[in-house]
């Protein structure tokens, strides 16, 4: 078992898949000669050459579309968009083409595209470089959306995504590329569907994904120490489709739920999870589920304001105490 950082785990997945299948190729801005904005493709250009590790012009919509076209003919493109904010420019190709071609063709054409999107609030990058877009993608039939919270999953989800016949959007987090964690030495695949209980508990469930898993885990630790509360932490991991069964199963055990998300609340993951709880296990709930989420503002530059705009472990602890009446 090796300790790898998030970016090294992504790099390893790229490397293994590219070595295995000559039709796997990577494209994106500065991913080749420069090695990638977050180093996730370092060294691949030297190893696989410019036809398979393509530095693209700054044309998000069209290089995404080139990825879609190549995927339709059986290639396995891994497209990196430098920042999730720039993915707005690629919406047409992603939403109108990648997501719909399999359906519109009556299942006759597949689009095994992988789109990697670094996102989230990092460190004072300002409003146009700090955002989450999962709520946009997870509402779209035909797309799969996954989001790794650890190096192990960053590796395993990319591996699975490359092999998947559907288009997969992977939402990574800019503040996690240097996060270290254990990644098994053996090749492995993280499922693109289903959630994972990353800390079992019985008193309440903290649903989280991506960076918020870490806040939830820190909060669960403190709740155990300070309150004697056993919080279960569920890493949602796959946002499209969401794991209805796993979400309901946890709450049938704990009867209380908090959704922790870095994103603004409106029309988001929390709203969806709570709707699922209503539909699947309403009468199992001992209290109304709540959301811990970002404030409804464009991300500010000032460090204090920026920090205040997104939640943290303290907010999760406070919400849990309130929910439990302690």
């Amino acid at each position: 078992m090796a300790e790898l950082s998030y970016w090294q785990a992504i790099l390893r997945a790229h490397d293994e898949e590219m070595a295995r299948d000559p039709l796997v190729f990577a494209m994106g801005e500065d991913i080749g000669v420069a090695g990638g904005t977050y180093k996730a493709t370092t060294g691949l250009y030297a190893k696989y050459g410019e036809k398979r590790v393509m530095d693209t012009p700054i044309s998000e919509n069209s290089y995404t579309g080139i990825g879609v076209g190549a995927a339709m003919l059986g290639c396995r493109p891994i497209v990196e968009i430098m920042s999730v904010n720039f993915a707005w420019l690629a919406m047409d190709q992603l939403m109108n083409n990648a997501a719909k071609i399999h359906y519109m063709s009556g299942g006759r054409i597949r689009c095994p595209l992988v789109l990697r999107l670094p996102g989230g609030t990092a460190h004072q990058l300002g409003a146009q470089h700090s955002a989450r877009m999962e709520k946009v993608f997870m509402g779209v039939p035909g797309l799969r959306v996954v989001t790794p919270s650890s190096p192990r999953d960053a590796y395993g989800l990319l591996k699975s995504a490359v092999r998947c016949d559907d288009p997969v959007v992977i939402i990574e987090h800019e503040a996690m590329y240097n996060l270290k964690g254990e990644v098994p030495d053996d090749e492995h695949f993280t499922p693109l569907e289903g959630s994972e209980v990353v800390r079992p508990g019985k008193d309440l469930t903290l649903f989280a994904y991506n960076i918020s898993v870490h806040w939830a885990l820190a909060a669960a630790e403190r709740l155990a120490k300070e309150q004697g509360v056993e919080a279960e932490v569920v890493d949602l991991r796959a946002l499209k489709p969401l794991d209805r069964t796993g979400i309901a199963a946890s709450v049938r055990k704990t009867h209380r739920a908090i959704v922790v998300e870095e994103d603004e609340a409106a029309v988001g993951v929390g709203a969806e999870v709570i709707a699922i709880l209503n539909e699947e296990c309403f009468f199992e709930l001992d209290a109304a589920p709540v959301r811990v989420h970002a404030r409804d503002v464009p991300t500010p530059y000032n460090r204090r304001l920026e920090k205040a705009s997104i939640p943290n472990a303290d907010d999760v602890v406070a919400a849990a105490r309130k929910l439990l009446g302690r």
């Binding site: 290089y63 579309g65 080139i66 990825g67 879609v68 190549a70 339709m72 003919l73 059986g74």
Partner: peptide, 10 residues
Amino acid sequence: FPLAAGFGKA
């Protein structure tokens, strides 16, 4: 347009 280029790439 990009799809056609993508076929070319493949």
